[in-house]
Design a protein around this nucleic acid. Structure first.
Lengths: 246, 246
DNA sequence: CGATACGTTGACGGAAATCAACCCCGGTGG
DNA sequence: CCACCGGGGTTGATTTCCGTCAACGTATCG
């Protein structure tokens, strides 16, 4: 666990993909105190019911947010990739209504809510950018909901793959149409509301159709267009255009 | 369509349930120019793909947000009740990734984005309150996702009923355990990812179990505890405690 | 008083869950 | 070094929840 703000550039790079920063704003971001820490895989970062006083910037690795049913079933709400602040919401919603967990070993930076709030009060443009990120979060929830509620297993899986490829590409973690795939079939199951058995079978169909190769930790879309079509993927909901020029 | 700001109190009441307003903040909210308008039922307010320059305060009536699958299936993401700003997200996400529609005849107030943004820049506490509202929005999406992905039809329906009763109660639109129920079975179907036939049957089971009475436009929970248990309803995710006192 | 939208019911079919093995592989320890 | 273990993946058989199709009832309204 090293100290203070050595990794702010990860956050700054992210912010600059949203708004153009003034020198002052960039400096203010730099000044944000941050506790960097390395975490093992499958470790809870915050748990449902807790009242954290800090949020967590994901520097390296993959995390997910989830919650359990009374009957012991898990629903994963989102996967998170480097540069994101998966629990930004705790800034304004005191009690966690779900948990945040590492999927792989992770490097994260903890930022106290107080300085983050001060920053937002002082620099409304930064506040807007953070706010905007949480809105995109919501947009992704909606898209997943649409998939789970209204699409069949093959389309859900294909859609998830398209989304991961697209988001990872935006931060330089995917080239061509391939990226890391740190998810077990169990995790995909809980994200898409299916069973592992069914995931497994449909995965084989998708492979057999020549749309992807999926090995241990690597996904490649051999037929991107086909995958997009199967998943009915339209990246609009990711709102990736820096400011969607008026 | 009357002019300017005669209905701001609806917004102010809402805000005061979140933060305590200073006189200045209250006055600033009052000054927000608002176009009040009456709309018929089943009318789109904004559509997927549009780039609105205003958001809409729901003063009276019920609305929903939805999006269509390529195969023509509809997923409803949320229902909205008086006092809410269903398309607040358009403030920072230029292009709508879903549509907003009236369910009943509605009275709405349109607020231009520009003055709203100015307000947020000038009064960070108000910005936070608005931001917070959009985060609760996201929390509701997550809870629905959990239901659709991981709960059976009876639990999903019960949960929706509990949620509506709870939210309506918070704005004084539910007494005891009864409230208006403006939703057709078709709308419930699209919200919960089911079919009308199945909705209908499960509804009858829930009635037969003595949990509710549901007539034309009125829902009453005859056995609130039972309904809560069936739906696994825990209101935490609604974050209704004004500020969840530290 | 028909139109039309919504609700109800029955019969049938299918997507996906569940149950139950079994395989493979990397890690660990005797 | 090999046995053991456990997590993840794979496969087959069976079940079930829910969808689809189709018909019919019922209420509201111009």
């Amino acid at each position: 666990m090293d100290a203070l703000h050595p990794h702010s550039h990860s956050l700054i790079r992210k912010m600059e993909s949203i708004v153009t920063l003034s020198d002052e704003e960039r400096a203010a971001l730099m000044r944000l105190p941050m506790q960097v820490q390395n975490l093992r895989a499958d470790q809870d970062i915050v748990r449902e019911g807790e009242r954290p006083n800090r949020s967590c910037l994901l520097i390296e690795g993959y995390t997910c947010r989830y919650s359990m049913t009374e009957k012991g079933k898990r629903q994963i709400f989102s996967f998170h990739i480097p540069g994101e602040i998966p629990d930004a919401q705790s800034l304004h919603l005191g009690t966690m209504d779900h948990s945040l967990q590492t999927i792989t070993p992770c490097r994260v930076g903890f930022i106290q809510h107080e300085p983050l709030n001060d920053l937002c009060d002082r620099y409304p443009r930064l506040a807007r950018a953070f706010w905007r990120e949480t809105l995109i979060d919501g947009a992704i929830f909606r898209e997943w909901m649409k998939g789970i509620g209204r699409r069949q297993a093959d389309a859900r899986i294909a859609h998830l793959m398209c989304e991961m490829l697209t988001r990872l590409k935006a931060v330089g973690l995917a080239q061509d149409h391939s990226c890391a795939w740190p998810l077990t079939q169990t995790e995909v199951r809980d994200a898409l509301g299916l069973s592992t058995v069914h995931i497994n079978r449909v995965l084989q169909e998708i492979r057999a159709a020549g749309l992807i190769t999926l090995t241990k930790n690597k996904l490649m879309a051999k037929d991107w267009e086909g995958l997009v079509a199967l998943g009915e993927f339209d990246p609009l909901y990711l709102h990736q255009q820096p400011r969607e020029a008026a």
